[in-house]
């Protein structure tokens, strides 16, 4: 028994680093508080602050239904919505999920001018979903971000977007209702992981029904610490969640 104290394990050390980073992040707020956009309650545990915020960019990977779920809340509250560069966007599904088709504008094939189209639409349409046709240059993205902040618009990117505020990822998906040879698709459980800056540093996961049996969306479990994520920085005690990844650390712009 020559060793006095056991060395902290590597995971414990990582947790400690995370916790410190989170505290730093919480203390130096990099942006002004912006107004919330009505969002579907299923996203309370996922998005930083629990809702979409005006002037932010949210990435949504791996699922068109996820994009529709993000559009549904603002659309139901009477806002216009636009979808750019997604020719296969299912109009009927959108209508069934609560997006008002009267206030939905589609630009299915913007071609090479897609970025200019997004910029023109974001000037007046409060929520714009886009699938980037090519890599976005960080300088262009930050110019657009400034425009979004000025106009109070939300951009949902169905692909990589430099400098996005949050990123939602469908990690696993499981359909119910269909068996081998009989049945009918009726609902799907997905695991959505969220990462981003602003509200939280760690990637957090949440199980959602996307869609559920009644063609709505539903959160199955509230991620720990989701409720207070908006106000207080997350503490290191969140380690109960599955593998901890490092949040991207960004210098304040």
């Amino acid at each position: 028994m020559t060793q006095a104290a056991p060395l902290p394990s590597s995971t414990a050390r990582l947790e400690r680093v995370d916790e410190l980073q989170a505290r730093i992040h919480g203390m130096q707020s990099t942006r002004l508080e912006t107004r919330a956009v009505p969002t579907h309650p299923a996203f309370t545990g996922l998005l930083p602050g629990g809702t979409l915020r005006e002037g932010t960019v949210v990435e949504a990977h791996g699922s068109t239904t996820l994009v529709m779920a993000l559009l549904a809340g603002p659309s139901a509250s009477g806002r216009w919505a636009a979808v750019v560069g997604m020719p296969e966007f299912g109009v009927e599904a959108a209508a069934r999920f609560g997006i008002d088709l009267e206030r939905l504008v589609l630009v299915p094939e913007p071609g090479r001018q897609w970025f200019a189209v997004v910029a023109a639409l974001a000037d007046v349409i409060p929520i714009v979903a886009v699938r980037p046709a090519e890599r976005v240059a960080p300088a262009e993205a930050s110019r657009l971000a400034a425009r979004l902040r000025e106009r109070g618009a939300v951009l949902i990117a169905a692909g990589p977007w430099p400098g996005s505020d949050a990123s939602l990822d469908v990690e696993a998906s499981e359909w119910h209702g269909l068996e081998s040879g009989h049945g009918l698709l009726d609902e799907r459980e997905v695991v959505v992981s969220a990462a981003g800056r602003g509200g939280f540093v760690k990637r957090r996961r949440s199980k959602l029904r996307l869609p559920d049996r009644a063609l709505g969306f539903e959160a199955l479990d509230e991620g720990p610490g989701a409720a207070d994520a908006a106000e207080s920085p997350p503490s290191g005690t969140e380690a109960g969640l599955a593998p901890v990844l490092h949040g991207e650390f960004r210098r304040p712009a």
């Binding site: 216009w80 959108a94 088709l101 504008v105 630009v107 299915p108 639409l121 000037d123 007046v124």
Partner: peptide, 27 residues
Amino acid sequence: GPDERVHHALTRVQSMLGHEGVVTAAV
């Protein structure tokens, strides 16, 4: 109100992409 502004923006996009470039949808 806002609808006039929406119309102007969509017209601008239409003049970039052509008449069929901007669509509204119905079931």
